[in-house]
Design a protein around this nucleic acid. Sequence first.
DNA 1: ACTTGACCTTTCCCTAGGGGCAAGGTTGCA
DNA 2: TGCAACCTTGCCCCTAGGGAAAGGTCAAGT
Lengths: 243, 243
Amino acid sequence: MITIGQLARYIGVSTKTIRVYHDKGLFSEPDRDASGYRRYGAKDAIDLVKIRTLAEAGVPLSRIKDLRSATDQEFQQALHEIDNNLTTRIRDLRATQGRLRELAAGHLAPLPTEVAAHLQHLARWGFTPRWVDLQRDLWILVFATHPDRAINLFHDQAETLADLALRQLFLDYDRAHDLNADDPRIDNLARRIAKAIQDRYGPDEPPELDAASAIPALIQDTVNASSPAWQRVDTLIRAHLGA
Amino acid sequence: MITIGQLARYIGVSTKTIRVYHDKGLFSEPDRDASGYRRYGAKDAIDLVKIRTLAEAGVPLSRIKDLRSATDQEFQQALHEIDNNLTTRIRDLRATQGRLRELAAGHLAPLPTEVAAHLQHLARWGFTPRWVDLQRDLWILVFATHPDRAINLFHDQAETLADLALRQLFLDYDRAHDLNADDPRIDNLARRIAKAIQDRYGPDEPPELDAASAIPALIQDTVNASSPAWQRVDTLIRAHLGA
DNA sequence: ACTTGACCTTTCCCTAGGGGCAAGGTTGCA
DNA sequence: TGCAACCTTGCCCCTAGGGAAAGGTCAAGT
């Protein structure tokens, strides 16, 4: 009959672990020898291997305890469930590993992949990093606040930018960032943008989030804050549309 | 700027989790609005996605905190290490899944596979389940107490049983279990076994564990306890060998 | 016979990563 | 104006053990 330390080394756990299993009642206490030491037999070793197998599979100790007194039927069904559980855990870990590698490559984004791809298109089309960053922030906030409608809104925007002429308009908007606020090209730009909006959406409102939502305004404020020229463009567009 | 609840839903964590990350200093507190609510921006969402990716990979929160102030060099190396870690975790989980399935099939044993195979041979050779169970217990104890020498001892035993005549001797031992202790066949059996032992190992000691180890005696005691006939066989063998 | 080191015993506190509740303040919508 | 759904901090609870304290025991060497 072996001691707790021998059993622990043999099975590959700590003595502490074995004592915890005794305390929690999922591994029955063996008889003690004359000096009060626990003495284990072969049956205990077999039991412990089973318990460890379940514990390593992530089964809570309390559940392992319950399983000890389950019928064979229940036990088999539980094993099946645990097996499935393990399969999804492995799949999740692999997904995490994939994301970890994206993080290593610097590509990790909290956005749907199609949005991330779109942002890369922007860079290739000649938009400045400043613009691309602004767009990323915008979409993150929109997806966070309106998960249901964000994707439609995004598709509309992506469609707009697929059109060469309209894209040029946005490129001009991007480049206007560093103009003086009183540059005559700004009024010209605002006029062209207002016309394009009306051509696309008619006299109705352009698609928006809630009328109540403060997000679009907030985004626009953030945008405007970074350049007097952009602020001027915004003001002029509203004037053209509102009139 | 979004609230903690919106950020939590968007990233897929609980608000509690976010607060814990703030408390542990791995996710910096954002500014508060007029009523004291935390208000998050797009950069925070990006940060949180990174933190979650690492946390889901099993990186301790304290390490994630340290990584925030690491150089790019260190960061990349850490990611590599975490990636390897994840790979072994996935491999371990698959091994656990394998053992789980053996458990489901009832084949789980805390013994090397060759020993498990040997035990199955025993059953096919006509040994009773009682004998096979006893052998399993014996080997479990031997492997637990003497991991280094057990395998040699086992090979010696397996070799012995591969010999048809010797195997028959053990089969007779097995069947003697239910004889009366004074059955004349018992002395005959003991004499034949003693002779076989001397033929195999000469006048020297048969291979054993430590002279100090109580295991062989303990096993033998357990064996003897289950049948007066077996106890008699043991006594007679000792007499024949000791003389 | 004595010491030494490696065991064993129990009890207690500590950890990570949150969950859940309480008691209170805020916001949005009808 | 009221109600539901937020938010705030603070507190205790959980799992699966780790580690240390304080003491008893065993085997080996001297």
